[in-house]
Simulated scan of single mutants.
Amino acid sequence: MKTYFVTGISTEIGKTIASAILVEALQADYWKPIQAGELDDSDTHKVERLISNKTSKFHPNSYALKTPMSPHAAADIDGVTITLKDIKPPKTNNHLVIEGAGGILVPINQTQTILDIIKPEYHVIVVSRHYLGSINHTLLTVNLLKEKGFKVAIIFSGDEHKTTEDIIKKMTQVPIIGRIDEEPYFDRNVILEYADKFQSEFLGL
């Protein structure tokens, strides 16, 4: 069984939708180690609503913080300190999809970042969405992950921007799973369609 870590180049770029598609495609378990804000409608809740299969399990956050901010700042407001020893992957005999918070260098405390949560054996999927600066952010993210020895793949999110995608493909030389289009809405049926479309790509990582 494999563990997949879903990260992105920024926030609000499609990590949760990509995670839902991956969970559905592999009937995998889902875990978000750190949730900051929206505790009544968390990313775990959102993914669970989008999943059709009955196999996937949804594991509790290690940290559920009240404020939608960088984890280190949200934790400070809540009067807690995030420590790696308390971020323990759930035990499962299934594939596991882990969704990060923000990008890989988002701080979780005064000395560590989301990158420190990612274990060497994880397969890292980077969600890249076009905006001014996204090429730079994608290349920085992918190149750092590659330097650290991780297996990396990319999912593009949003409307196609060919020149952006072409140069990212050329300069990263990592597998491209596909694109999640700018859909009018996402529900279980849409997630299932993408899961069927991407399943072989996920399994091939």
Rank of each mutant, 00 (worst) to 15 (best):
F5Q: 02
V6L: 14
V6Q: 14
V6W: 12
V6N: 07
V6H: 09
T7Y: 05
T7D: 09
T7Q: 07
G8D: 10
I9T: 12
S10E: 14
S10V: 00
S10L: 04
S10D: 15
S10A: 14
T11W: 00
I13A: 05
G14W: 03
G14F: 03
G14Y: 06
G14I: 00
K15Y: 00
K15V: 02
K15T: 03
T16H: 07
T16C: 05
A18F: 06
A18R: 09
S19V: 02
S19R: 11
S19G: 12
S19T: 04
A20H: 09
I21P: 01
L22D: 01
V23Q: 08
V23D: 05
V23K: 06
E24Q: 15
A25H: 03
A25Q: 08
A25T: 12
A25P: 12
L26P: 11
L26F: 15
L26Y: 15
Q27T: 10
Q27S: 13
A28E: 03
A28H: 11
D29V: 10
D29P: 11
D29H: 14
Y30S: 04
Y30A: 01
Y30G: 07
Y30N: 06
Y30T: 07
K32Q: 09
P33K: 07
I34M: 10
I34F: 10
I34K: 10
I34L: 14
Q35P: 11
Q35V: 00
Q35A: 09
Q35S: 09
Q35F: 14
Q35C: 02
A36C: 15
A36K: 01
G37S: 01
G37Y: 08
E38R: 15
E38L: 13
E38P: 02
D40W: 00
D40A: 05
D41M: 00
S42P: 10
S42D: 13
D43V: 01
D43L: 08
D43G: 07
D43N: 10
T44S: 09
T44V: 04
